Amino acid sequence: MLGVTVPFTCLSCGYIGQSNSWTYLTHDFQMDWEFDSTLDSKLALTGELNLDQNYEFTLGLSFGKTLHNAISTLFQSLNIPFEH
């Protein structure tokens, strides 16, 4: 589970080396594409953050034996100030 303390403005995924974010970002430094899914390959996930209100944010990545466990761990972690 991936979460962040500011909103995403754009999300995408792609095949590594073919349609991944680095391939497109090196072209014009804009996230002006979106793919909904990739199947049966190594993939890359990309997200653009809305930094209009604040340049500081915390990004969290959590794992769990169940989806509920991963979500709970993520939200609990993001609720604690980064300094702590």
Rank of each mutant, 00 (worst) to 15 (best):
S62I: 12
T58C: 09
L11P: 00
Y15Q: 12
L59M: 15
G60T: 13
G17T: 08
N50R: 13
L61R: 12
C13F: 00
F29N: 09
Q18R: 15
S19G: 12
W33H: 04
K42H: 10
T23N: 06
L25K: 08
D32T: 05
Q30A: 11
G17C: 05
G47E: 01
C13S: 00
E34S: 03
L49T: 10
L51H: 06
Q30L: 14
N50V: 14
S21W: 08
L43F: 07
G60L: 13
D40Q: 15
E34L: 01
M31F: 00
T38A: 11
F63L: 14
D40W: 15
C10T: 01
F35N: 12
C13D: 00
G64M: 15
E56F: 13
T9L: 04
E34F: 02
T46R: 08
F29Q: 06
T46D: 04
N50A: 13
Q30G: 10
S62C: 12
Y15I: 04
T38S: 08
L51V: 02
D32H: 04
F57D: 14
L11D: 01
I16T: 12
F35L: 14
N54S: 13
S12K: 05
D28C: 06
Y24L: 07
L11C: 05
H27G: 06
S37E: 11
S37H: 07
G47F: 00
G17M: 06
T9P: 01
D36C: 05
F29M: 03
L11R: 04
T9E: 01
G60Y: 12
L39S: 03
K65L: 09
F29L: 06
T58F: 07
E48C: 10
K65F: 13
G47S: 02
G17Q: 05
T26K: 13
L45K: 01
D32A: 07
G64A: 13
D52C: 13
L25W: 14
D36L: 10
T58E: 08
L45A: 03
G47C: 00
N50I: 14
L45E: 02
S37D: 12
Y55W: 08
Q30E: 14
L39A: 03
L25T: 11
L49A: 03
Y55T: 08
W33F: 08
K42G: 11
Q18D: 15
D32L: 07
Y55N: 05
L11Y: 02
S12W: 02
A44Q: 11
K42I: 07
S41E: 00
A44K: 06
L51Q: 04
T23F: 04
T26W: 13
C13K: 00
Y15K: 09
E48M: 10
D40L: 14
